[in-house]
């Protein structure tokens, strides 16, 4: 046997390998983002009662710590859309301006329009619906009537010693 067929085989193998790598890279560029997204841990939405009691009063060093479904550093609820909300909203103002407010989807839309008209907020593009979904889901209004009861659970009761 001459050396030729071997050389050809090796050449073919190298070509095949190159093709596989090329196709692999091509596919990754095409679908990689979606693939990675699929395997990423998805935030778990939580119910209102849980986050209310959590309060966001903890002091933590880690920037990304999540406790009881709350992103500790910002106080925002860690749910679908969190990253986009944090990225767009806290660029200009405190997350507290989000967490202390409650509104319907329409109400949150109005606030975005107002910030765009008066406060220099940019066009949110396709992120807008993600942000609105997040806000309307996690920071929706509750009906508290014309005057809510004093929140007796929240009061710190203390003994007051008075002269009798």
């Amino acid at each position: 046997m001459s050396v030729r067929p071997n050389l050809l085989g090796a050449l073919l193998a190298i070509l095949n390998l190159a093709l596989i790598i090329f196709v692999g890279a091509f596919l990754y560029l095409l679908f990689g983002d979606n693939l990675v997204e699929t395997y990423r841990n998805q935030p778990v939405p939580m119910d209102q009662a849980t986050y209310r009691s959590a309060g966001g009063r903890n002091s933590v060093d880690a920037e990304e710590e999540i406790v009881n479904g709350i992103h500790v550093q910002s106080g925002l609820i860690y749910a679908e859309g969190f990253d986009i909300v944090r990225g767009n909203c806290t660029a200009c103002h405190s997350a507290k301006l989000v967490t202390q407010n409650r509104a319907t989807r329409e109400g949150w839309t109005d606030m975005i329009r107002w910030m765009q008209a008066k406060q220099g907020l940019w066009d949110l593009g396709k992120n807008e619906s993600v942000i609105l979904d997040y806000l309307a889901t996690n920071y929706a209004p509750e009906d508290i009537g014309r005057r809510a009861n004093i929140n007796v659970e929240e009061i710190e009761w203390y003994l007051l010693d008075l002269e009798e």
Partner: peptide
């Protein structure tokens, strides 16, 4: 005054 949440004795008057 007082801060909300005061617990007092019945006989006392609360300023």
């Amino acid at each position: 005054y007082p801060k909300t949440g005061a617990m007092i004795k019945r006989a006392a008057r609360l300023p």
